[in-house]
Design a protein around this nucleic acid. Structure first.
Lengths: 341, 341
DNA sequence: AAGGGTTGCTAGATGGGTTTAGCAGTGAAC
DNA sequence: GTTCACTGCTAAACCCATCTAGCAACCCTT
């Protein structure tokens, strides 16, 4: 049996004023409304004595502002690391005095519509529309014209109507290339993992890698094709090694691929980074656990989530695509190139 | 500019009835209130034509029920896997027609108080109070006497006032022991990882392991002390192997420890499971990625989250501690014991 | 003494629902 | 012809804030 909350009426009565006066005082509008200092003090004291907290439902009913936002994702909560995007959104929401609802659509348009309706029925102020993988999306009808920021996804509109926050994958590709070229690597650089055309991260990472290597006057020696999972990478890299391939560098399209590559290289008796350097993307927990620790270009989930909510609740800006830098986590898997001249 | 929502008044006017009548019809209380079938149909049609959806803020103001719950955690959203508990809670909440707020206290009592106040101001119906690590907690003052379920934590109260949902770690210890004894292992079984007394999971897992082994007429040969991280485990196991220890089985207190153990065993030229069998706890993603795949006793985060909300919103039950089974994920890291007789 | 300005406050409408209490109208019973 | 029950509905209170419009009291001016 928690204590009954005091209402504004009770505060007003205790202070000997009307509800209106109490409301003005507590809203800090006493100057507007010319409330005497004496009355003000009485209201403030009464509110404190009764431990008054306004009923935000009642306030919101009147003001149409709930100070709540909803994060609608496809499967964000399911993914271990993408959960950090939720964490970042949450932190930014709280920093702006808002609370955060979360909801998952499982990628199902019917669930999505139901979920958004439920949020609208509760009068949420704004939405973060998030995707697990970076991709193009259509804004659901119910969200059109409302305050929405896209998290890890984009619309195809020529003139963007919404903010979109995505990781800067092209720059990340450049970073990976720079890590290698600065260590003197120019030859035997193989991409590991299939950069499927429809996978945003793969396409852009590859583009950045190509540009970065080209800028340093070199290029990829080839690609070891595989899915983005340890198993597939292990098989592919093992096969490549057995067929006589002797890479000097593997650029793995994510850390899971790197794990598979590590296992394959170890299995073939090759040392990292003495025989083969490895650089990867994502900087998941795994990267710091591998031996040697893996140099990886970080996917800043937390920042993505934070920035999305910041665009939603911070000072208004022209809608557009915000690309969040992917910082390099330099560790021990990239060695100096041996001069073969 | 999203379309203006129709109000109950507009529905009533279009149907040619009063707000009261429209409300009764839409609440399905037409029999109670003796509304003619004709009037009922008119209201229903009007509601459909106007695409009427009730304003839940207004309803909640009156009924004191918001159909929202709050998940208050210390650092749950930060942890990759514990995020699945949020996912489970979310799914259960939605299944009961509720929406879920989340909030993080970072373990700070001041933030916690502020956060809970914010939730109470928004009239949430109930709380899930969650902890990252299983541990004893005190219920915050503001939550006393309200509907609260503890997720992955416990109170010390002799007579429990709240439901608590925790993983059944003792049974998990038994399971680990059973996996080994059924494969014929009796000797050279080493615990890996320090089961600190104040760490619930460690204490209970160890107790279960001891009981399980004893029931099969054997016991632990010793403990390789280390923190619950790959690095520490790698160092400790490497050191133990160098000092001449020849374990037949390592029971790792979690998958990260198992990763370190794998690395150390591999480094010493030992094969898994031919030379050494490994069993572990948590069944994180990692377990399926290691070579050979790791047999691990699963920490069912999703189930924990689901069950907590189920206890909150499902049929009322006597408060008490609910232990969620930790299923065995049998993979390839445990081999048959070689008969040394 | 009438008119105007200022000060300090309040009545009451408003938001959009739920729910209690009760009112007409009809038909049947006595 | 009165009483009664029943049917079908509605007025208005209620939840708890916000906020517009305006009132009473006082002082000052002319």
């Amino acid at each position: 049996m928690p204590p009954q909350r005091a209402t504004l009426l009770q505060v007003a009565q205790r202070a000997g004023v009307s509800r209106s006066t109490a409301s003005f005082v507590l809203a800090g509008r006493h100057l507007d409304m010319r409330i005497s200092e004496d009355a003000r003090q009485r209201v403030l004291r009464a509110a404190q004595e009764l431990d008054y907290r306004p009923n935000l439902m009642a306030r919101s009913l009147r003001t149409k502002v709930t100070r709540t936002i909803a994060l609608v994702s496809d499967t964000l909560a399911s993914d271990p690391y993408a959960g950090r995007a939720i964490h970042g959104s949450l932190a930014a929401a709280v920093a702006h005095g808002h609370l955060l609802f979360i909801g998952e659509t499982e990628g199902d348009p019917l669930i999505e519509e139901k979920l958004i309706s439920d949020f609208l029925d509760r009068q949420v102020d704004a939405f973060v529309y998030a995707s697990m993988f970076t991709r193009y999306v259509r804004i659901p009808k119910l969200l059109r014209g409302r305050p929405v920021v896209l998290l890890n996804c984009l619309t195809r509109a020529a003139k963007p109507a919404y903010h979109a926050v995505i990781p800067d994958e092209v720059a990340a590709g450049w970073s990976a290339a720079r890590v290698l070229t600065e260590a003197g690597h120019r030859d035997g650089i193989y991409l590991t993992g299939t950069p499927a055309r429809h996978v945003f991260a793969g396409r852009e990472r590859l583009a950045g890698i190509r540009e970065g290597l080209a800028a340093a006057g070199t290029k990829l020696a080839g690609t070891i094709e595989c899915d983005w999972w340890p198993d597939s990478a292990y098989d592919a890299v093992s096969r490549a090694l057995r067929s006589g391939l002797r890479p000097r560098v593997l650029i793995c399209l994510n850390d899971r691929v790197a794990l598979g590559a590590y296992q394959a290289l170890r299995g073939a008796g090759l040392d990292i980074p003495e025989d083969v350097s490895v650089v990867s993307f994502d900087d998941s927990e795994l990267a710091a656990w591998l031996r040697p620790q893996l140099t990886s270009i970080s996917l800043p989930h937390y920042q993505l989530g934070w920035q999305a909510v910041e665009l939603l609740l911070g000072p208004a800006q022209e809608p557009g695509v915000v690309r969040i830098p992917m910082p390099v986590r330099q560790r021990a898997s990239v060695g100096k190139a041996i001069d073969v001249a």
